[in-house]
Nucleic acid binder design. Structure first.
Lengths: 196, 196, 196, 196
DNA sequence: CATGAATGAGCCTTCATTCAT
DNA sequence: CATGAATGAAGGCTCATTCAT
């Protein structure tokens, strides 16, 4: 009989991905050694290669998975709404919530682009673009319906994403501001900033 | 070999700092080797140590110098103005202009905090805080005079800085938007976002 | 490359220890490079670290092992005899014989104390002391039974050990004096020197 | 006018020799860096070369000077006495006293033979031999006059020197045994050991 | 004489990766 | 699948020595 689903191999891979996320977040990709990764997982260094192809492939996989999930989830949230202002609120709410709960993934996706090999970089940049395109689309629709006023929708979209993502750099679950408060503050900032 | 004709300590140190800035920006601190750095400067690897104490000390020095200059320059720009709205415009203008012309320094100061040794990290964080304090002060004064409306001046300050600094990640001197246009767009975004 | 055919951890470690003994004896610990050590063993420099923790740990291990064996062997030789004079003869015979056949170990244990890190030094000194304690015990017993006359048993013990160990500095298996002759000469010197 | 005797240059050289003695004693010749030496003397590294030729030349000079003084002083002490037993007492007394006050020199002369370049080693060994020859001569004369009984005068001479020199390894000026006591103990040990 | 900037070889150690077992 | 021993390149840093200033 063949290996069953959820076999030891799959569990090990999941453990490797989890440990990789943690260690890259803590030390950076270059500074994370596979020695450390193997120790964290509780296996020998050589055994890693039964589950990953190379260190670079692990990085790419972590980044790609995060971005794919991000786009998929966003689309699910937006699917029932067509009004630009409502869609923008959903975007801000979703972006903040999703990123605040995934600080490691976000950090890696923002800081380790430089560690990607050229062809992996191309693929990741394309995924990022498709996420940004959602926000640009929302802004364009809002401007068309005279709900928003934007000098340049692309520039504004980048500014908004930078601002929202910036929160993750300092947000702590047990800090003085709750996630809900932060969502409100930033939703206001964005909506006021581009109010028609 | 001894000192080569015309060599001089100060010139060499300046060359090391310049090359360090470039290489850390390109590859990251961990990934920059002193072999590469020496080659870029045109000296032997060991000769670096006539000018820097360690690789870590070089990183710290580059970050510290940038932050100190940043604060000094900002204070000079603000010194003649007391109106909060005018001061905020100066801040946005200065921050964008200064950062766009120093992409390497900015990138390093944002990405390589994790590469700092604990006691160096403390000192850099304190310098960053003193820069942020300028913006927080401006916002507070503006709120007091009912020029601005902010749910939380600290959170707003971080959001503004994140947004403005984000521009540096994609701005290119020869891109489709001039620096002046970007300053205008972002000044509007900020002022509208916190308009009373 | 992976493990080469027929390679085995234990064999490699033994080869490293043997080569280490030889090279430290020839050049001193500081002057022995791990490059040389690896070349002597026939592996890559980095492969050493599959078997030793650090260069320092290798030194400590070589010294500790020698001293532990020394004490164990001596105790075995002395175990059947209780008369002080007979025990002293056994000591001289054993010390000379054991040391003459292990010139490298002896040399290292005497010359490289200064290369030990503080906490390793403490442990080695304690092992040395436990060996010296055997001779001091013999002398004390002999003095108690009026077989020996010693102004100071500790000082005498150190003097005897220094004298005997000194032989190793010049003894050569094929020299003009056989090991047996040297044992006789020194046994006489010692016994006469402390005769009651 | 020319540089006067006791000029700054000579003082610096003396300081270098003194610091060299101290640092080689503390860390060993290989482990002593010229950086450390220069710092100890209070000059720059490069300036050392105005006073010494090379690191090796400094080592050789320190060893040679010590051995030459040793022989000269011993001869002075022995010059008025012709009786072998009295001469042997003088030897033991002188050897212990001179060595106890020059622990650094003694240590270096015994431990750093291996650091000498071949032709320097030859010269140092020859100086050592001429010192040992004094003791061998005394023993031979004593045997001829039936004052001593030695199976082998050379072996005995080495044993005696090893024993006496060994004291320096543990003697401390403020320890529990005074220098005078140690001289007495060892003189007795030697004289009894070879008593006719 | 002293300085300090340079050399080039060398140091111990860690790295990602491979593969016989 | 896991292990552990191996590879070869590279890492940051120190060394004794030289010589223009």
């Amino acid at each position: 009989m063949a290996r069953t689903k959820g076999s030891s191999g799959e569990k090990t891979l999941a453990a490797i991905r989890k440990a990789g996320l943690k260690l890259i977040y803590q030390h950076g990709f270059e500074a994370m050694s596979l020695r450390d990764l193997a120790r964290e997982v509780g296996i020998q260094q050589g055994s890693l290669y039964n589950h990953i192809e190379t260190k670079q492939a692990l990085l790419f996989d972590l980044m790609r998975t995060h971005l794919e999930n991000l786009v998929t989830e966003l689309d699910a949230r937006l699917s029932d709404e067509s009004d630009p202002t409502a869609r923008l609120k959903i975007f801000v709410d979703f972006h903040l919530g999703y990123h605040m709960e995934r600080k490691s993934e976000v950090y890696i996706n923002n800081s380790e682009l430089r560690s990607l090999e050229p062809q992996n970089l191309v693929r990741i940049k394309s995924l990022r673009k498709s996420y940004e395109a959602r926000l640009i689309g929302i802004l364009k629709a809002g401007v068309a319906r005279k709900q928003f006023k934007c000098a340049d929708v692309s520039v504004t979209a980048f500014a908004v994403i930078a601002m929202l993502t910036g929160v993750c750099a300092w947000y702590k679950p047990k800090g003085s501001r709750s996630q809900a408060e932060l969502v409100k503050i930033h939703t206001d900032l964005v909506l006021t900033g581009i109010a028609a």
